[in-house]
C-alpha cells in the first residue's frame, strides 16, 4: 500500500517515462499508444469532474467528445477545400484555434444538455444523457454536408506553433502537456470554494441550499466544465486519428469513458488516467487473443465492479476516497 500522492506522481511519471523509452527504442507505435492513452485520460478526467465530484452519472459524454472532434474536422475540411464556413469564416488547422473552438462548442453543448438533464436526477439523468448522446449520433449520421457516416478525413494533422505535430514524440508531448494542464485545473477546482461546494452538494444538496447556494447551478457549472474538457479530448483525438466520424458520438464511447473513470477510481484525481492506461493496454493485449476477446473484457469489468470498489487506485493506495 502506497500513499495516493506518491501513486499519482508514479502514474504521471510512468506515462512520461514510457513515452521517452519508446522514443529511445525507436518504437513509434508505442508513442502513438501513449498519446491515445493520454487523450482518453483527458476525456476521463473531464467526465470525472461531473461524475466523481458532482455525482452526475453522465452516460452521454460521447456527445462532447464528438463535438470536439467535429469542431476540428469541420474547420480542417474548410481549410482543405479553401471554402469559408458560412461563407465568412476561414477554415483553419491551427491547433490553438481549433481547440478553442472545440472547448467553446463542448461547453455550449454541455450547457444545453445539462440545463435540460439536470431537471432530473439519478436514473433519469443516466438515461437522458444517454438519449441526448444518441440524438447527436443520429444527427451526425444524417448530416451529409460533413460526410455523414463516412465522416471526414483530415489529410494533414493540425499544426501547433513551434512543434512538428507529425512527429509522434511531439504529438505525444502535446497531448501529455494538455493532460497535465487539465489535471492541474481539476486539482485547482477541487480545492477552490466552488469545488468544496460541489462536494457538499453531492453529499447533501439540502444543506447547501440552506446557505443560499443553488445546487442546480453548481452542478450545471461542473457539467459545463466537464463537457468542455471532454470536447478538448475529442479535438485531440481527431488530430491523433486524422479522421472524425459519427462513431465518436456512439454510446459505446460514452461507456468507454465511463469505464476509464471507474476502472481507475471514481473521484480520484489520477483515477481516469490509470483507467485509460489500463484500458488501452487491455485493448492491445486482449485484442489478439481470440475472435471473442470482448467476452474476457466483459468478465474483467464485472470482476472489478463486484470485487474492487474504488477501482485500481483504490486497491493500490491506502487513502480513503475523497469527500
Amino acid at each position: 500500500m502506497i500513499p495516493e500522492r506518491v501513486f499519482n506522481w508514479a502514474v504521471w511519471g510512468g506515462l512520461l517515462a514510457f513515452a521517452l523509452l519508446a522514443e529511445a527504442l525507436g518504437e513509434t507505435y508505442w508513442l502513438t499508444l501513449a498519446a491515445r492513452a493520454a487523450i482518453f485520460a483527458i476525456a476521463g478526467v473531464g467526465l470525472n469532474l461531473a461524475l466523481g465530484n458532482g455525482g452526475l452519472i453522465s452516460f452521454g459524454h460521447a456527445a462532447f467528445f464528438g463535438v470536439g472532434g467535429y469542431a476540428v474536422g469541420i474547420l480542417a475540411t474548410h481549410a482543405q477545400t479553401y471554402t469559408p464556413l458560412f461563407g465568412l469564416i476561414e477554415g483553419t488547422q491551427s491547433m490553438p484555434v481549433t481547440w478553442s473552438v472545440a472547448i467553446v462548442a463542448g461547453a455550449l453543448a454541455a450547457l444545453v444538455i445539462g440545463a435540460l438533464s439536470l431537471r432530473t436526477s439519478g436514473a433519469y439523468f443516466i438515461m437522458i444523457t444517454l438519449a441526448f448522446g444518441q440524438m447527436f449520433y443520429y444527427f451526425a449520421v444524417t448530416w451529409s454536408a460533413y460526410g455523414g457516416e463516412d465522416g471526414m478525413s483530415i489529410y494533414v494533422r493540425g499544426g501547433f506553433p513551434g512543434l512538428n505535430t507529425l512527429d509522434p514524440l511531439h504529438f505525444f508531448g502535446l497531448s501529455f502537456a494538455v493532460l497535465t494542464l487539465v489535471l492541474l485545473l481539476v486539482r485547482m477546482i477541487d480545492r477552490s470554494p466552488f469545488g468544496l461546494a460541489l462536494n457538499a452538494v453531492r453529499q447533501s444538496p439540502a444543506r447547501v441550499e440552506t446557505v443560499g447556494i443553488s445546487p442546480r447551478r453548481l452542478r450545471l457549472a461542473a457539467f459545463v466544465v466537464s463537457g468542455a474538457i471532454t470536447a478538448l479530448a475529442g479535438a485531440l483525438f481527431a488530430d491523433l486519428n486524422r479522421y472524425v466520424s459519427p462513431a465518436m458520438f456512439s454510446w459505446t464511447i460514452s461507456g468507454e469513458i465511463m469505464i476509464f473513470v471507474i476502472l481507475g477510481g471514481v473521484a480520484r484525481l489520477m483515477g481516469p488516467v490509470v483507467g485509460a492506461l489500463v484500458f488501452v493496454a487491455l485493448e492491445e493485449l486482449l485484442g489478439g487473443l481470440s475472435d471473442y476477446w470482448h467476452i474476457w473484457l466483459g468478465v474483467l469489468l464485472l470482476l472489478i465492479v463486484l470485487f474492487a470498489r474504488g477501482g485500481i487506485t483504490g486497491a493500490l493506495t491506502r487513502e480513503a476516497r475523497r469527500g
Binding site: 452516460f59 443516466i126 465511463m258 469505464i259 471473442y292 470482448h294 473484457l297 468478465v299 469489468l301 465492479v305
Partner: peptide, 19 residues
C-alpha cells in the same frame, strides 16, 4: 449506486453479444 450497475450490465452486454 447506479454507476456500478451501469458498468456491470455494460460488461454483460459484451459477454452476451460475443457469447
Amino acid at each position: 449506486d447506479h454507476l456500478d450497475q451501469v458498468l456491470a450490465t455494460f460488461a454483460l452486454i459484451l459477454i452476451f453479444s460475443e457469447g
